[in-house]
Design a protein around this nucleic acid. Structure first.
Lengths: 202, 202
DNA sequence: TTGCCTATTGGTCACACACCCAATAACGTG
DNA sequence: CACGTTATTGGGTGTGTGACCAATAGGCAA
C-alpha cells in the first residue's frame, strides 16, 4: 500500500497562494533557469495541479517575468541596501558580497533573462525595469560619495553605467568554465577608476 | 494545381551536403537563435526530410555547436583578418565594423550561446574554443602594436581580456531596448585606455 | 550491366509544453 | 444552515521536440 497521493484539496487565500507560486517559481528560476519555470514544474514543486498555476497566471510568460523580477529585486536589496553607512563602506560591502556561489546564480539569471528577452516582451520589460532600479540605486550612492568628496567623478550616472557594464561583462563568462583573473578583477578596477579611488581600495 | 512537391530525391556528395546543412543551421542560429536550430527547421529550409539531418548529425546538439562555431569563426575573420596593415589601422577597422545591424546579430548569438552553455556541454566547449581564438587573435595584434611602439601596455594578453570583457558587457544589452550612450562608448574607451592611446583615436 | 553502399525518405514513438474547460469542493456570507 | 463564489482538480487538445527505423533509390565500382 503506497502512501495516499493526498488528493485532499487545500484551499488558500488567493494572495497567499499567489505569492507562494511566485516564490516557488523564483527558486526554479534561480537554480535551474527561466526556461524551467513551467506550469507543470512549479505545480509539482507545490504539490498542486498545473491548472491552478494557470488560474493565477493565465499566461505563463507573466509568471516567468514575475519570478525574475522578484528574485532580482531581493538581490538588489541585499547587495545595496538602504543604509546609514558611508558610500565607500557601501561599495566595499557591495563588492564583498558580489563574489561566491550565490552571486554566480544571480549572474546566471541575468544572463538568462537578457537572452530570453529576445523572444519574450513581458520579460524584456521587466529586465529593463530592474536594470533601471539597479542603475538608480548605484547612481544615488555614487552621487552621495561625490557630494561628501569621498569619490571623484564627473557624472554619477555615467560612472554607474560603466561599472554596471563592466560587471555584466564579467558575468558573461559565468557559464563557461573558469573566469580568467584579469577579467574577474576588471569590475572592481573599473569602479575604482570611475570613482577616483586608489587601486586596492575596494 | 500547385507546383509539384518535388518528391524527387537529390543525392549529393556527403561532404557537400554536410556543409550545406551547417550553412543553413548557421543562418537560423544568427537570425532566429540557437534554440531554433532544430532538425525539422533546418530540414525544411533545405527542402529535405528531418531524418537526413539526423543522418549527418545523430545528436542535434552537435549541429547547434557546429553552427555557432562556423558563424563566429567567419565573423572573427571578417572583423580581425590577417592583414599587412598597422595594428592601429586594424583596430580602427575592428571597431568601425563592430557597429550596425549585422554585428548586433552576432552579439545576440554570443549572448545566446553563453547562456545555452549552461545546459549544453558540447556548445560550452565550442564557446570556450572560439573565445580563446578571439583572445589569441586580439592579443597578437596588441603585441604587434606594443613591439612597434604604437601601443603602450604592460601585458598584451591582459589588455585583450579587458577589451573583450568591456565589449561583452556592452553586448549584454543587445536584446533589451536601446543601449545608453555611456555604455556604448565604454568598449572603445576601454581599448584606448588599455592601449595607451589618446581619447578619440579609435 | 550487375550489384553493393549509403544517402534519403517517410513514418512512428515518447515526451514536454501551454492552454482550455467542465466538474468539484472549500470557504465566506446571508 | 443554505447558498453562491471561486479556488482547485482532472482530463483533453494541439504543437513542438529528438530519436529511431525500415524501405527506397541514387551513384559508383566491378
Amino acid at each position: 500500500m503506497t502512501s495516499s497521493p493526498s488528493p485532499q484539496r487545500i484551499r488558500k487565500n488567493a494572495e497567499d497562494r499567489r505569492s507562494e507560486i511566485v516564490r516557488a517559481a523564483a527558486v526554479v528560476a534561480l537554480t535551474e533557469g527561466l526556461e524551467s519555470v513551467t506550469l507543470r514544474r512549479v505545480a509539482e514543486d507545490l504539490g498542486v495541479r498545473p491548472g491552478l498555476i494557470s488560474h493565477y497566471f493565465p499566461a505563463a510568460e507573466d509568471l516567468v517575468a514575475t519570478a525574475f523580477g522578484a528574485t532580482v529585486a531581493a538581490e538588489l536589496d541585499e547587495l545595496l541596501p538602504p543604509s546609514e553607512a558611508t558610500p565607500l563602506e557601501r561599495f566595499r560591502r557591495f563588492f564583498g558580497a558580489a563574489i561566491g556561489e550565490k552571486f554566480d546564480d544571480v549572474s546566471r539569471l541575468w544572463l538568462n533573462a537578457r537572452h530570453l528577452s529576445r523572444y519574450r516582451p513581458v520579460l524584456c520589460a521587466e529586465v529593463n525595469r530592474r536594470q533601471d532600479d539597479w542603475h538608480a540605486r548605484l547612481t544615488a550612492v555614487i552621487a552621495d560619495g561625490i557630494a561628501t568628496e569621498q569619490f571623484n567623478a564627473a557624472d554619477a550616472g555615467v560612472a554607474a553605467t560603466r561599472i554596471l557594464v563592466a560587471m555584466d561583462g564579467v558575468s558573461t563568462y559565468v557559464n563557461v568554465g573558469e573566469i580568467p583573473p584579469a577579467a574577474a578583477a576588471f569590475a572592481v578596477t573599473t569602479a575604482e577608476r570611475e570613482l577616483g579611488l586608489p587601486i586596492g581600495t575596494l
